[in-house]
Structure formats: structure tokens, C-alpha cells
């Protein structure tokens, strides 16, 4: 089939007739994701300042210390990293920002590579997202447990700004995790009818509601999990001290 774009538009990366700042979004995404990856990698290898008082950094939870100088973070971070890497939203984000496949809609791509989408290794593994979701759910329990523990100071029950930070962290991560497309499918989306499934319909509606804002939850929880770690690190390293509310 004769394909007319060849006669109407130059091909190759960035070829477009769009007049708006289409490059802005992929650049911002790349910057945001890049910054997080750099920060979390540095923190994972730092192997220090991850707990203070009742607070535990989410990068180090659950805390598995096997010694030998191996950072506990390195033992567990594969799970949230895997969940986010295979997430349907992040896939869009990094396919656009890093692979430029496409960088933005109706914008040309570099034509050299042979495009296979998600049909071949390694991207075919994206289909296993639901298994990462199962793991992520375990982490949600752990993080809520961490948030619960953040009420128990050495001098008894109390609440600090850090407690709130940790609760919000668990909340945002829950909002992100339970809006997962795979979860939405498993909890009800796989059915063809809800005629005999009121509970299933309710769950599916709930997941759908979260899912509609999956991108927002993704960024909010990503930022906040980094911030939670940053907060714990700052208090632990003495950059500033935690404010006790009661």
C-alpha cells in the first residue's frame, strides 16, 4: 500500500507539523523519572540513615539485614521497582520519554530500529505485571505496619510529623497499587457480566475510580515515597529534627 506520509511529511525523529511544545511532556517525564532513579539508587547504596526513632525509610522496608556490607535496600527494592517498571502507566511514560516510541503523538520516530512493541523479549515480560502486583500488595501491608509503628516512640505513644509522612506514604501507595490495571481486571474486569456479582461490581467500580487517576497516583506516590525517605534520612542524619505533635 502506498503510504502517503512519505510525500507529505519528512520522516525521522521529531518530524511533525505540530506547532505546540510537544517535547515538553517527554522532557519533564524524563527529568522526573531520572531524578527519582538517581536519588533512590544513591540512597539504596548509602546503607545509612534509614531509620530513626519509630520511623523506617520505605526504601529499607522490610528491613532485612544480612550484614556483609550489603545494603538492605538492595534486597527489597526490586519489588517496588519491578511493580512500577511493568506498570501500564509507567510503560507509557518511559516508552515516550526514554525510548521515544513515540515521544509525542503525531511526532516522527527514528526509523532505524525494528519495532516489536511488547511482542518480544524483554518487553513481552510486561505481561507478568500481575505477579509484581501480588508482591506489591505484601509491601502495602508492610508499609501500613510501618506507619502504625510510627506512633510508638521510646517514651510511649505519640505522633510526629514523620508519623503523618509515613501514613500519607502508605495511603498514596495504596491508592496507586489498588488502582492497578491488573488488579482492576482480576477483581472484576475479567467477568463479562456483573449480573450475579454485586460485590465484584462494587470492587471493580472502586478500582476503576482509582484507575482513572492512575497517573496522578503514580506520580504522587513516587514523589512521596522519595520524600518519606528524605525525611527519615534528614532526621536520622541530623539535618533537621522531627517535630512531635503530641
Amino acid at each position: 500500500m502506498a503510504n502517503s506520509p512519505r510525500t507529505m511529511e519528512k520522516s525521522g525523529f521529531g518530524a511533525t507539523q505540530r506547532t505546540d511544545a510537544w517535547w515538553l511532556q517527554p522532557v519533564a517525564t524524563a527529568a522526573g523519572l531520572g531524578a527519582f532513579v538517581v536519588y533512590s539508587t544513591l540512597r539504596a547504596f548509602e546503607n545509612n540513615f534509614y531509620t530513626v526513632g519509630p520511623y523506617l525509610s520505605p526504601f529499607y522496608s522490610p528491613l532485612i539485614d544480612i550484614g556483609m556490607g550489603i545494603s538492605p535496600a538492595l534486597l527489597i527494592l526490586w519489588a517496588p521497582a519491578g511493580f512500577r517498571t511493568t506498570c501500564y502507566y509507567y510503560r507509557k511514560a518511559y516508552y515516550r520519554a526514554f525510548f521515544r516510541d513515540p515521544a509525542a503523538c503525531a511526532v516522527g520516530e527514528s526509523n532505524e530500529h525494528k519495532y516489536c512493541g511488547e511482542t518480544k523479549f524483554p518487553f513481552i515480560l510486561q505481561n507478568l505485571h500481575r505477579f509484581m502486583f501480588y508482591v506489591a500488595v505484601i509491601f502495602i501491608f508492610i508499609l501500613w505496619h510501618d506507619a502504625y509503628k510510627a506512633f510508638f516512640f521510646e517514651d510511649g505513644v505519640g505522633m510526629g510529623v514523620g508519623t503523618i509522612v509515613m501514613i500519607l506514604n502508605a495511603t498514596f501507595l495504596s491508592g496507586y497499587t489498588f488502582g492497578c490495571h491488573s488488579f482492576r481486571h482480576l477483581i472484576g474486569g475479567k467477568r463479562d457480566t456483573f449480573q450475579d456479582g454485586n460485590a465484584s461490581h462494587g470492587c471493580w467500580m472502586g478500582a476503576s475510580k482509582l484507575n482513572a487517576k492512575h497517573m496522578n497516583w503514580a506520580w504522587l506516590s513516587l514523589f512521596w515515597v522519595g520524600f518519606t525517605d528524605f525525611y527519615v534520612r534528614s532526621v536520622a542524619s541530623g539535618l533537621f529534627s522531627d517535630f512531635r505533635i503530641f
Binding site: K92, Y95, R96, D101, C105, G117, E118, T119
Partner: peptide, 15 residues
Amino acid sequence: GGLGYCNITKCCTEV
């Protein structure tokens, strides 16, 4: 149908 080729970059939804 080649659904696997879709890398869910969402331009279809945008337009």
C-alpha cells in the same frame, strides 16, 4: 490482530 504491538502510549485516547 497483533495486540502485543501496542505499547500503550495512549495517543489513540488523546485524539
